[in-house]
Simulated scan of single mutants.
Amino acid sequence: MKKHSLILLASLLASPMALAEVVVIGHTSGPDSITQNQVRDIYLNRSQQLPDGQKARPFELPEGNSARSEFHDKVTGRNDAQLKAFWSQQVFTGRGQPPVEQGNAAAMKATVASTPGSIGYLDAADVDGTVKVILTP
């Protein structure tokens, strides 16, 4: 019985439903692709430009959101506490402001769709024709 429970648990963890696939999205007028390093640099205030030269306007989902956790785990390598400390320092020293937070996936998609130069991230299942996928980290 124990063996069957372990096999069931392993198959659930390995299934596509276990983890959402996070993708980086952009405005339809923006670049068709971007590198993971470029996205990291935008989200960590090291760069303010998209590959096509447009000013980058990054958007963020709220703390505790699973897509946010997966995005930052894969792209910036930082968790919520590390991001909070990083942005506190950036703001305190006058180096920058954190990405504007969107309340949920629908708000993220609508904001990126209506803001030229914008960049965000969503679960791949939430993407439609209003935005384009520019990176699958």
Rank of each mutant, 00 (worst) to 15 (best):
L50R: 11
R68V: 00
G53D: 02
N45S: 11
R78E: 10
R57Y: 11
K55Y: 01
F92M: 12
S47M: 07
Q89E: 07
P98Y: 08
A67P: 03
F86G: 07
R57D: 00
R78L: 15
A56P: 13
F71H: 06
Q89G: 04
Q54I: 00
S69C: 07
R46H: 15
N45T: 06
E60H: 12
P58K: 14
S47L: 03
L61R: 05
A67G: 02
N65W: 13
A85D: 12
D73C: 01
V91Y: 06
D80W: 02
F92G: 07
Q82L: 07
G77D: 05
F71V: 03
G96E: 06
Q89C: 01
G64W: 10
P51W: 01
Q48N: 14
V75C: 13
Q54C: 02
F92R: 08
N45V: 07
Y43C: 13
D73H: 08
Q49Y: 08
L83A: 04
E60G: 00
Q97T: 14
S66F: 09
S69L: 14
G96I: 02
Y43S: 05
R78K: 15
D73Q: 15
E60P: 06
E70N: 01
R46N: 12
F92E: 09
K74G: 06
F71S: 04
P98E: 02
G64H: 13
Q49T: 12
D52V: 08
G64A: 05
A85Q: 03
S66T: 14
S88Q: 13
L50S: 03
P58N: 13
V91P: 04
N45C: 07
F59C: 09
S88R: 03
V91I: 14
D80E: 09
A85P: 01
Q48I: 10
F86Q: 12
E60Q: 14
L50V: 05
G96R: 06
L83W: 00
G77T: 02
A85W: 01
T93I: 09
R57W: 02
G53H: 00
S47T: 13
P62E: 04
Q54N: 10
P98W: 10
A81E: 06
D52A: 12
Q89P: 00
